[in-house]
Write a protein that binds this DNA or RNA. Structure first.
Lengths: 219, 219
DNA sequence: AAACATAATTAGGTAAGCCTAATTATGTAT
DNA sequence: ATACATAATTAGGCTTACCTAATTATGTTT
């Protein structure tokens, strides 16, 4: 059995590893979990004994295969619940994270498989994040930040790299939604802002901070 | 904030109080929660300090109005989740209890109100138990055990007094479902078994143990 | 290489919820 | 009223998951 705390550590390690690659430091973990570094050191030693992670003293930790599978199952649950909250219960994409943080810890394989089926086996959550299957496998993802596109490229908005409510609400307010077609009409040299045409209709200026966090795929 | 343990104590106290009325003893609580009596004494003292219950030493405990409201909100959540699991996810009525025991502790008023709406504001759960509203109010319930009916009475099966999987599965196997119409054709003096006609079709003999746990309303 | 800042660890402590064993209440039978 | 069984409480401990303060590593600067 893995405890609530362990699940949260595993998920945090997975996410940091995903973003910054390789070994995860004690301080990075302490930061994301909002837990004192001394407590983290304590805890990861125990997790290493349980083979959930490998731990090199003063270096950092890495998920074991077992740990990775558990992390992925939590992420799978989190994202499936988010889909449900948005598609079936009418929540907005900036309202579901905290609720899903609770629901993701409910234990029942049967439940999660039935939920998956009920939702029609979605491949992505409301933020465009991929949902791993029951075995922890993802479909391929070829998205890149809009900031890496060149003038003239036409792409589809498929996900966000930043999940803060501030950013999600900015997009909602700006009427930019997953699935929108974006045409890069120009890039301002001075401030790296993008002029884009959305769904062949509206024209918008998007700041460098924004385009960095919009994930798109080529059309 | 009320902890997971507190929620479980409150729910247990509510249920014992409901069944046996009045004051709830330490041992009854210890029994239902499968927790040592000494631990229960410890815990209820703390709950009394928090005004969740009133506690008279060596006598037992009673829910405070605040405690009652919390207990009812847990029960509300439990039963709404059960409805969802059966109606939307395809679970059987004997498969949902443990999952709902976990889901009932998820904290979000918004969530539970949206769920309630999504389900069409159900008044009863899959076992026929009443679902309190957001303010902890129940609709009236006029049901009684089938065992209290007399020969010739025609009633509707609306709930179970016993929630064990064994009993639920017995009913499923016997093809007796909530909403079925039951006509008491005869009562065997010797063993108090009932001969009933179900939905004006099948005839069945139901033992005293069974009829005691079938809740019905007059038709 | 020495000095320094930063990161990580160790040591010692706390609160929540549980436990067992020992003691004290309570209520019933003699 | 006393004895007895049962229920409840007290006392002392344990584990989990956190904390602070003090110490030790690590990796840059100079």
């Amino acid at each position: 059995m893995t405890s609530l705390a362990e699940e949260n550590y595993l998920k945090a390690i997975y996410k940091i590893q995903e973003k910054h690659g390789d070994v995860v430091t004690t301080s990075a973990l302490a930061e994301t979990l909002a837990i004192n570094a001394a407590s983290v050191t304590d805890f990861i030693k125990k997790m290493a004994v349980k083979k959930l992670i490998s731990y090199e003293k003063s270096k950092g930790v890495r998920l074991s295969e077992q740990g990775r599978q558990i992390a992925l199952s939590i992420i799978r649950k989190h994202r499936l619940w988010e889909v449900w909250l948005v598609n079936n219960l009418g929540f907005k994409w900036d309202e579901v994270h905290e609720i899903a943080e609770q629901l993701e810890h409910v234990i029942s394989d049967e439940l999660i498989e039935q939920l998956d089926k009920h939702l029609g086996y979605p491949k992505t959550d409301p933020h465009g994040d991929l949902i791993p299957d029951a075995k922890g496998r993802f479909i391929k993802n070829t998205s890149k930040p809009l900031s890496e596109c060149s003038k003239g490229e036409k792409v589809k908005f498929t996900g966000v790299a930043e999940h803060s409510n501030a950013f999600l609400q900015y997009l909602t307010k700006s009427n930019i939604k997953l699935g929108d077609e974006l045409l890069v009409e120009g890039i301002e040299e001075f401030d790296k802002s993008f002029q884009v045409k959305i769904n062949n209709k509206e024209r918008k200026i998007l700041s460098k901070e924004v385009v960095k966090n919009l994930l798109v795929i080529a059309l």
